[in-house]
């Protein structure tokens, strides 16, 4: 929904920098998020993604650079800006003694055009829990209430800071469905996450941050294509002859697999299968896999996203 004073993009960032004393947490970030887009910011802990998002939310003041969010400078703290965005932080920030319904009504009252209560409850699947006290909700339910609070003012842009950290797999899948529903309503969403799978599943575009810089940006499929390598992996029965060429032998004494990471998977597979026919052996558990976003992440940051885990 274009509004006067809006630039074409929902979020436009150029040359963003933020220093804390001698430490430069963000070192020149450019970012553009279109209206209606779901954009994921990935990165290991300390990469600067939370700092970046908090500057966009208006919680932090930048050291340098240009920032426009829905046509506003978030640092100004204008009410008009706050009326148009929803922020879901990592910590809950609601009164544990109020009910779900009371909490949502409290926050709805802050906005000029709030979403109807029932819509909010349905959007996050908390209709049955409307009269429950917040403190009696499960962790997943509290997180969903957090999201509902972020949606209370019917924002055009929603910030989701690690929306599913600490969720079990089924809660995560529910949360993904919920975010998918928000996307269908045309919301622009900027999310940060540790989970590559989450970014691949939810985001139209992804930016990977490392050490205060964006090191890769694009659609998840583009990013994985950029990483040209395909991995071929198989096992051999005991006593089989060694395979040809570049296949790395499994480590001694381990029930490992032969692997080859290659930029020319078709040619290498052809050589492999020719060798198989020639020697009359069979490959066990043969797999050919495209790189995942996780591989891209490790390649670019030197960290595994999973090993970062919780922040």
């Amino acid at each position: 929904m274009p509004t006067p004073g809006n630039s074409a993009a929902a979020i436009e960032v150029r040359g963003l920098r933020k220093s804390y004393g001698a430490l430069e947490a963000v070192r020149g970030v450019d970012l553009r998020v279109a209206h209606g887009e779901v954009f994921a910011l990935l990165g290991p802990n300390g990469a600067g993604k939370t700092t970046t998002v908090e500057i966009l939310e208006g919680h932090r003041v930048r050291s340098a650079g240009e920032v426009s969010v829905l046509g506003h400078d978030p640092a100004s703290g204008e009410r008009a800006f706050k009326e148009r965005v929803g922020i879901v932080l990592q910590s809950a920030g609601v009164d544990p003694f109020l009910s779900v319904e009371e909490t949502l009504n409290l926050f709805r009252g802050y906005y000029p055009r709030p979403l109807p209560l029932d819509d909010l409850l349905d959007a996050v699947g908390l209709r049955e829990k409307r009269r429950e006290r917040v403190r009696r909700l499960s962790g997943g339910q509290q997180r969903r209430l957090d999201v509902a609070v972020g949606l209370a003012g019917d924002p055009e842009l929603l910030f989701l800071d690690e929306p599913t950290t600490g969720f079990d797999p089924s809660a995560r899948r529910e949360a993904w469905e919920m975010v998918g529903g928000l996307k269908e309503r045309g919301k622009t969403i900027l999310l940060t996450t540790h989970y590559m799978e989450e970014a691949e599943h939810l985001a139209d575009r992804v930016a990977i941050m490392n050490q205060g810089l964006i090191v890769a940006e694009g659609r998840p499929s583009e990013l994985t294509q950029r990483q040209a390598a395909t991995t071929v992996r198989f096992r051999l029965a005991d006593g089989a002859p060694a395979p040809p060429g570049d296949f790395a032998a499994p480590p001694e004494g381990m029930d490992g697999a032969y692997t080859l990471t290659t930029a020319e998977p078709t040619r290498d597979l052809h050589r492999l299968t020719a060798w198989v026919v020639e020697h009359g052996v069979e490959l066990q558990e043969l797999s050919v896999s495209r790189p995942s976003l996780d591989d891209v992440f490790i390649d670019l940051t030197g960290h595994s996203a999973a090993e970062d885990g919780q922040s």
Binding site: E57, G58, H59, R79, K82, E83, V85, I87, L89, Q90, S91, A92, G93, V94, D95, F107, Y110, Y111, P112, V149, G153
Partner: peptide
């Protein structure tokens, strides 16, 4: 500490 102040700070409530 619970993040309530920060959260409300991000809403139009003064």
């Amino acid at each position: 500490d619970g993040g309530l102040l920060k959260r409300v700070r991000g809403t139009p409530l003064p």
